[in-house]
Computed example of a mutant assay.
Amino acid sequence: MRVCVIGLGRMGRGIAVNLSRKGHEVLGFDIDPNAASKLSGSNVIVTSDMLKCPEGADYVIIAVPTGKESISVINSIAGVVKGTILDTTTMSLSELKDTLRVVGERGLRYLSVRLEKGPREAERGELILYVGGDEELFKESSSILSQIGTPVYVGNHEQATALKLISNVILTANAVILAEVSTVIRKLGMDPDTVVKALSMGGSDSAQLRARLPWMLKGNYSESFSLRLARDVIDKALEYAQSMGIQLPITTLIDELLRIAEAAGYGSKDFSEIAEMLKVNERKL
């Protein structure tokens, strides 16, 4: 199978490597001229011409940061792409509407594929996929989707997009609470691994506790989901809720805290670096 991946950042790069390892012919494109060097040692073929990537591709996977960029990509490749577009971009409702308008006008085969988990899972083919769009097209695409991760058909494009935003609100709120209590845990002087093991056995267990609390306690963060991207998704969630006349006061407070941390220079690797800002504030007290 021939696959084109447009956007070779942390997630797109992982998906491309995973699919190439499974024997697919994978072409990739990114506006970053250094993208090819980050894929050295893999079988992914990186092209400098975005229009060459989707030629003859059975599937085109879009993995760009925002909906605006996704719309730009779709407009650019619409005359070339013949296969199905799997758009993994996290976007707002307004961006989704603009995207679907372009898709409809161009008569493209398109699925919304919103991703859960991080770059390591992308490279292992262990992502969770919230898929929205035509159900028959989803069934037709189940083989490639199942090689990227575990696909869950959730309904229409809006439902898949909203579910991804809701998921990000929950995980971000969880991680922010963990960052706050990490200051208390450090005062206890306990072994970080023992703390995580103990807490994960009780009612406070969560994916964020197991993945991000160790980073916070040890001050050693992996490249995963930058604070800038986390804040952007929270902003999209707030915009979506407001469009329905719903207020999210706690999410709004978290958004403000993320903005403060970003302005202070934290979160280039992962948004959980907000714990480092809290450490600084703790020392000032």
Score class of each variant (00 low, 15 high):
163 L>E: 03
87 D>S: 08
75 N>C: 07
48 S>V: 06
46 V>Y: 01
277 M>H: 01
42 S>I: 11
138 F>H: 05
221 Y>F: 04
32 D>A: 14
211 A>E: 06
8 L>D: 08
227 L>S: 01
168 N>T: 04
225 F>E: 03
45 I>P: 10
207 A>R: 12
218 K>E: 00
116 E>N: 00
91 M>V: 13
153 Y>D: 03
103 V>C: 13
4 C>G: 00
179 A>H: 04
126 E>N: 00
77 I>R: 04
246 I>C: 14
2 R>S: 05
103 V>S: 08
172 T>I: 03
168 N>H: 11
220 N>E: 07
281 N>Q: 14
84 T>C: 02
93 L>V: 15
238 L>M: 12
36 A>N: 01
221 Y>D: 11
155 G>P: 02
238 L>T: 04
15 I>P: 06
196 V>S: 12
190 M>P: 04
62 I>S: 12
285 L>K: 12
247 Q>V: 03
273 E>W: 01
212 R>T: 01
195 V>A: 14
156 N>V: 01
21 R>W: 05
242 Q>H: 14
112 S>M: 09
48 S>W: 11
247 Q>E: 15
40 S>A: 13
61 I>G: 05
281 N>F: 02
119 P>T: 08
254 I>H: 12
234 I>S: 04
197 K>N: 14
285 L>W: 08
177 I>M: 13
190 M>L: 12
185 I>R: 03
158 E>T: 14
3 V>C: 07
140 E>Q: 12
157 H>F: 08
84 T>N: 08
5 V>H: 00
117 K>G: 00
153 Y>E: 12
178 L>P: 13
42 S>M: 03
229 L>K: 15
163 L>F: 07
238 L>P: 04
257 L>A: 15
223 E>F: 09
176 V>S: 13
195 V>K: 10
224 S>K: 06
79 G>S: 06
5 V>S: 02
163 L>C: 11
83 G>P: 03
188 L>S: 10
258 L>N: 09
29 F>Y: 06
81 V>E: 04
285 L>F: 09
197 K>R: 15
220 N>V: 13
168 N>P: 02
